[in-house]
């Protein structure tokens, strides 16, 4: 079409009219509650007096100075980072292998790998709890029969266990993201490199990897932000003592009932994640502006 219809007043009115219901819903039930939560983090709380609607920095001061919170946030981001690394190192090659399969196998295995994305996280984590299952867990039995370890490793209630289960939960996001990047790669390009005398390793390092890197990085951002705020997996595998940000906030709200402190933890998590996601998105887009187009 040589000319896209421009918008006059009538169109703008129609557009706002059509979006009005959703906009009202979002302002009423998303923006206001979020603002109230930020406010809540500045309120006071006492064992017997409950929440006092005053404006103090007590909770923020506590979160900032108490080493317990520093350790907890450090653990949260450590787990998220390790999970991201594992999904990238294993998920990217898998996406590449998947992409080279022939039609029917490709869609079958894509379904097998991406399908779990839609299966309840509780059920998937339960599966890991069963596999880890104390010293007699299947994973330990397998590793011992392979001679990889001499004595059972503890997986339940450890960070190792959380990272493994979380990597499994997040893996589909990484595969999907790299897969999407691979779809934009011209399949002939590898043959072109081959015809120029490049070996398989060179092709992967010099031709394939640079092209799927944006996919890996955007997958990494997704996995990192979801892992850092994950709740079900750390709660089930980590148990009551190994706290991350989400499970701590849950405890403050539903066990200790110190809502203002829980709100401070949650708001801090949100702010940290938004900064990390927005910051790395900007970095990636600048670095890969050409590839992203």
């Amino acid at each position: 079409m040589s000319a896209a219809p421009a918008t006059d007043g009538r169109d703008a009115r129609t557009a706002w009219l059509l979006t009005a219901p959703a906009l009202m819903l979002f302002v009423g039930v998303l923006v206001i509650p979020l603002a109230m939560t930020v406010m809540l983090s500045f309120h006071d709380w006492g064992q017997y007096k409950g929440i006092e609607p005053v404006f103090i920095l007590k909770n923020w001061h506590e979160v900032a100075t108490d080493p317990y919170f520093a350790e907890m946030f450090w653990r949260t981001f450590r787990i998220a980072l390790l999970t991201t690394l594992i999904t990238a190192v294993l998920g990217a090659p898998e996406a590449y292998i998947l992409n080279r399969m022939s039609g029917r196998w490709k869609s079958f295995f894509l379904l097998v790998i991406l399908g779990p994305l839609l299966i309840s996280v509780v059920a998937r984590t339960l599966g890991w709890a069963l596999l880890f299952g104390g010293n007699n867990g299947l994973v330990n039995k397998l590793l011992m029969s392979l001679g990889l370890i001499g004595s059972p490793l503890p997986f339940m209630f450890t960070e190792t266990g959380i990272v493994i289960a979380l990597a499994h939960v997040m893996m589909p996001f990484m595969v999907l993201s790299v897969w999407a990047a691979l779809q934009r790669v011209d399949p002939q390009i590898e043959n072109a490199a081959l015809s120029l005398g490049a070996g398989p390793f060179t092709i992967i390092r010099r031709i394939v990897l640079p092209q799927i890197m944006p996919g890996v990085l955007s997958g990494a951002i997704i996995v990192f932000s979801l892992s850092a705020s994950a709740f079900a997996t750390p709660a089930i595998i980590g148990g009551r003592r190994l706290k991350v940000a989400a499970t701590l906030a849950y405890d403050e709200f539903l066990n200790t009932l110190n809502w203002p402190l829980g709100a401070a933890v949650a708001v801090l998590l949100l702010v940290a994640l938004v900064l990390i996601v927005v910051g790395s998105n900007a970095l990636i887009e600048r670095r890969y502006a050409e590839v992203f187009r």
Binding site: V29, L30, I32, P33, L34, M36, T37, L40, S225, A228, S229, F231, A245, A246, A249, Y250, F253, W259, G262, A263, A266, V267, L269, L270, L273, V274, V277
Partner: peptide, 17 residues
Amino acid sequence: SPLMIPHVVLGIAFLRF
């Protein structure tokens, strides 16, 4: 935006509201 906001934060916000 609900895709970007951690669900734990959403849960807290809704509970409060």
